[in-house]
Amino acid sequence: MKLVWLHGWSLSNTDPAMVAHPDAPAIFVFDKPFLEQTRMAFPRLQFMFEAALEALAERHHSRICLGIQAEEIIAFAKLHHCTTICYSLIPSPELRRTLDALEQAGLKLEVYPVEYLTSYTGQVKRFSAFWREVEHEVLRG
């Protein structure tokens, strides 16, 4: 059984992991340790919550909660007998801690790749040089 994990970069039912698993349970967690350490004005929390509500509205089994991200995902996976967590990869170092904890708990990870505008894979340093490389691809599509 699979579980879809929505994170702060994927708050939509069009998220690739959601689309791939339309019947799977899905969860979004507000990470409490992060909020305890980071000053965050209220409107952002509501903006994310509204997005999560709509993303999960059609799901048979879904949960939005506040807690330690990895622990909440593991608990919800157990509840629904899920052994694989599906999510969209984003190059944010902030997700690493959660992913490590999920793996340590013996869960399998099914990753949907980041969507970039370009297929460029070289090192990047200055936008102008990058733009010269990718301009054609971006404008043409």
Partner: peptide, 16 residues
Amino acid sequence: LYTGEPRAPALHGGRS
């Protein structure tokens, strides 16, 4: 867990 007062964001969150 937040700063300031609770108030709705200027933009509505969500896909639609």
